[in-house]
Design a protein around this nucleic acid. Structure first.
Length: 431
DNA sequence: TGTACTGTATACCCTTCCCG
DNA sequence: CGGGAAGGGTATACAGTACA
């Protein structure tokens, strides 16, 4: 075969990239396949802390930081010759995992071109050294660090490789867009007034559920005037040539609602410009039916789109949620436990921050879908659900902080965190 | 019948601004 | 003043249409 084995990199993965591995031939010379040693650099689900990203200049790297903080661990004490890594015995074995590659010897490097395999070509050029130091790492060091990683970037990496992304198991739905919240969202008292004025009003008033400001688990109920768009529902006023005539018919059908919305006529008309077929009293929404909005008709976890912390809540009522909230239809309270845990909060601060100047986190659909949710056994699910139930049943109990701490502890267990990693999260040290 | 194109509604995400 | 709810621009999905 006339292929230079040193130029081959094999990428091995299943369709979920778990495990994920690079393989390449070490000691490979053109025309001498027998001398080539196949080396494998792998990421697996359970053993995520492997130094290969550093050794091979993959983009991760807060390693320098780690050295500063890790007393006594210094580049100088690390072996600086490749021979201390690759022993003759190892060369005899054809398969070797998790070892550092040898630097390319001088004459072989001269034959290489710029486009050559990065992985099989350890850092020799000056430009590469400027990006990342080429110091090889001993096995011993790797083993020690894999037991107690204390660098936030490594913890983040570990979390990212735990469990499965949220989007694999759950679907996230966004809330209803309103042209003007003040106009369409009403409280219990206003609802009673409107229905007392005209009993028909109840036909277009539907419950919604919102989060309570500043509170993690609690929700508040409210009501929404839901008159779906004429594009989706044929009303008596739909598609009238004369808008004032349509308005008159609307006022006849729902006099109380009409009187309420007239106060917001100007603002609703200005914001509704562009959607020609609609009148100011209509929502830009389909009919509220189970088949149109199945997510609202089942138990759901919901959370606001932004904020400086995740504040997820749970609702079993058949109520809608508004825009700037997302909901996940599920009755799995162990997911709620994870979302409201300190661990997830730490992950969110590390991942979801949108701009440097503001502390706000953006729990966008994409961000959330990618979030790693640890696998839970049935027992673990039950235990977490029980804890969450305790809080939901009595959110103002003085015991809530204790229960939250216990939930945090259980979540740390789910993600198999070490004491050092837990300390990082408790201290709020982000990457 | 399949494909390309087009217009529109919707959802997403960022920015603004209000309220505690 | 900061947090967070709401507004608004825009990318995207999708339905409808034309045409091969």
């Amino acid at each position: 075969i006339n292929i230079n084995p040193a130029k081959i990199t094999i990428i091995c993965a299943n369709r979920y990239f778990r495990p994920f591995a690079f393989a390449y031939f070490n000691n490979a010379e053109p025309g001498n396949w027998h001398a080539a040693v196949l080396k494998i650099l792998a990421w697996t689900q359970d053993n995520t802390y492997i130094q290969t990203s550093y050794e091979h200049e993959l983009p991760i790297g807060s390693f320098a930081e780690f050295r500063d903080e890790d007393n006594g661990v210094d580049e100088n004490v690390l072996p600086d010759t490749p021979d201390s890594v690759d022993t003759p015995e190892e060369t005899e074995t054809s398969l070797e995992t998790f070892t550092t590659p040898q630097p390319v010897n001088q004459d072989r490097q001269q034959t290489r071109t710029e486009g050559d395999n990065l992985l099989a070509t350890p850092q020799n050029s000056e430009s590469q050294q400027a990006i990342s130091p080429p110091t090889p790492i001993s096995h011993e060091k790797i083993t020690n660090r894999s037991i107690v990683p204390v660098v936030p970037a490594d913890l983040l990496h570990k979390l990212q490789n735990t469990g499965a992304p949220l989007g694999h198991h759950w679907k996230i739905h966004s809330g209803i867009t309103l042209k003007c919240v003040k106009a369409f969202v009403i409280d219990e008292r206003k609802r009673e007034d409107l229905i007392r004025e005209d009993a028909n009003s109840s036909r277009v008033i539907t419950p919604i559920v919102r989060r309570l400001r500043k509170k993690k688990w609690e929700v508040e109920g409210a009501y929404l005037i839901w008159i779906s768009s004429s594009l989706h529902k044929q009303w008596s006023w739909s598609y009238m040539e004369d808008e004032s005539e349509a308005e008159r018919i609307f006022a006849q059908m729902y006099p109380a609602i009409s009187r309420h919305l007239i106060d917001y006529k100007d603002i609703l008309k200005s914001r509704g410009a562009g959607s020609k077929a609609q009148y100011y009293w209509e929502l830009c929404a389909r009919e509220l039916k189970r088949e149109n909005y199945p997510e609202f008709y089942q138990p759901k976890i919901f959370y606001p789109f932004n904020g400086n912390a995740m504040r997820a809540a749970y609702s079993t009522s058949e109520a809608c949620i508004l825009k700037s909230s997302y909901c996940i239809p599920t009755d799995d309270l162990s997911l709620l436990a994870i979302l409201n845990s300190k661990l997830f909060g730490w992950y969110a601060r590390a991942q979801f921050r949108n701009s440097a100047k503001r502390s706000a986190l953006f729990f966008t659909k994409k961000n959330m879908e990618k979030s790693p949710i640890a696998f839970r056994s049935e027992d673990q699910k039950m235990e977490l659900s029980y804890m969450v139930d305790l809080i939901l049943n009595n959110p103002n109990s003085p015991e809530v902080p204790d229960i939250e701490r216990e939930i945090d502890r259980l979540v740390y267990e789910l993600y198999k965190l070490t004491d050092a990693e837990i300390a990082l999260i408790e201290k709020g040290i982000n990457p």
